[in-house]
Design a binder for these strands. Sequence first.
DNA 1: GGGGTTCGTTTCGCTGCCGACACGCCGCTC
DNA 2: GAGCGGCGTGTCGGCAGCGAAACGAACCCC
Lengths: 243, 243
Amino acid sequence: MQLSCYECALRPCGMFKPVAAEELATINDIKKQHVALPAGAAIVRAGEDSPQLFTLYSGWAFRFKTLPDGRRQILNFLLPGDLIGLQAAMFDAALHGIEALTGVQLCVLPRRDVWGLFGTMPGLAFDVTWLGAREESIVDENLASVGRRTAAERVAALIVTLYKRVKLLGLVDDDDSFDFPLTQQHIADALGLSLVHTNKTLAKLRRMGMFTTHNGTLTLINPRVLERVALYFDEEMPQRPLI
Amino acid sequence: MQLSCYECALRPCGMFKPVAAEELATINDIKKQHVALPAGAAIVRAGEDSPQLFTLYSGWAFRFKTLPDGRRQILNFLLPGDLIGLQAAMFDAALHGIEALTGVQLCVLPRRDVWGLFGTMPGLAFDVTWLGAREESIVDENLASVGRRTAAERVAALIVTLYKRVKLLGLVDDDDSFDFPLTQQHIADALGLSLVHTNKTLAKLRRMGMFTTHNGTLTLINPRVLERVALYFDEEMPQRPLI
DNA sequence: GGGGTTCGTTTCGCTGCCGACACGCCGCTC
DNA sequence: GAGCGGCGTGTCGGCAGCGAAACGAACCCC
C-alpha cells in the first residue's frame, strides 16, 4: 500500500497548519511507507528500540505502561494526525508501549529522516517539537484527572476532551455523535479506576442525561454541561502541524 | 547577578553531554540573565504567556495544575540542569504553573532565541526536543504511579526516582542521604493522596526501615529494597544535554 | 518574650472505590 | 445451531484512603 502526501485526506480538514510546497515535498520524501494494522496490534513495544516514527493516518491508538504485575495505565489516546513514537524513538528502549485501538493506517517515518529535518528543515523540526509538547500537555491533563478528579469528573473529562479532538477532525455529526471505540476496560485503564466502578460511573452519567451510547457511537446531549461536570475548560489548539 | 556559561558549575558534574566550543558559545549567547528567586516564587503563571524559557541552575521547582475549586496536582519536579517552560513557551497561554520549591537560580533564555536555534544550531535544537521528551517520560511515570500504584508504592517510587536523579547530579552522600526539601503537602499533591494519608504512608515506610529523615535530609537505608517496594526499575539516562 | 506561621503527627468516623463473582447479550467460528 | 469469547451490567462485603479537627515542635519576626 502506498499513499502520497499530496493526496493526503487528512490535511485538507482545516485543523492543520498550511505547509509550504517545499515542506510538503520533504514530508512526502521522508514518508517511506503506508501500512495498515488491525485493532490490538503493537505499534511500539515497551523495552525495545523504536527506529521509526509514525503519523496516525486513520483509526485510534493509545500509549500505555504496564507494571511488573500486570496493572496497566493508559497514558493518552492518539487520533488521526497525531505523531506517534517521538519519545520512544528518542531513547534506546521505549519506556512505554503503543497499541492500535481500532484498525489503523500509519505513515512510516524513519527516525534518521526525522532527525534529519533538524539540519535541513528547521520549520518542520520545530513542528516535531511542538507536537511533542502538545502530547505532554495531554498527559499533564490526564495526570491532573487521575490525581485530583472524582470518578465522575474523570469520565466526563475524558469524554469531553476526546469529543473536542474528534470534532476538530470533522468527525462529529451535527447531533454531537461520534465514533467511540473504547471499551470500558480502556476507560478504566486510562482513568485509574476499576472496571466495575467505571461501569457504574458511566451508568450514572448516562442516567444524568449527559450522553447516550449505541453500538460504538457516543452522542453527547449537552457538551457544555459535561464540561462543567468535568471541571474541564481548556480548548484544543485550533491549528497545529501535520507531518 | 551574572554568570557565564563558561564558568557553569553544573556542566562539569559528569551527567551532561559534552558540547562543542561553538555550541557552548551559542548557549552563552542566548543566556540573557542569571536570576535568583526565593522559595514559593511563581516561575510560570498558568494562563499567561510565557516568553522565556529557563534552565534551572540550582534549587528545586515543580510544575502543577490547579482545578477551579483549588485542588492541586503536581505534575513533576524539576532539578538542576532541567529545562523549564518549553511547553509553556510553545502555546499562547501556559496550561500549568511552575513554582520554586526552594530558593532557585535560573538561567534566562528568551523564547525567540531558543526558537532561533532551530535555524542556526540543529544539534542544540534537537537537544531541546530531547529534553522535552524526557520531561514527558517523567510525567508518564507519574501518571502510571497515581493511576495504578498503591499509596506505599507511590511514595516509594517518588523517593527512588528523586534519589536517582539527585544522585546523578553528585548531590548524594556516600551514606545515601540527600537534601529533600518537599513538605508532606507537596508529596500528597504529587501523588494524588490526601495529606493525612501521605503522613501515615511515610510513617509506615519509615517503620519498615526504608529511610530516615532529619530536618530536610533524607537517608535511604537500602535503595534496592525501596525500588522493589516501588515496583520501579527504570534507570535515569546516564548522559543528557544541558542548555 | 510573645504571637504568628509553617509543618508534622494523630484521632475519628465515614465513603468512594475495589475485588470477586455471577449473569446476560451479542457476534463469531466451526 | 452449539459453543465460545468479548463486553456490559449488577451485587456484595471490605478496605484504602478521605475530611475535619486538634495539638505539638520549630522557626520566624517584631
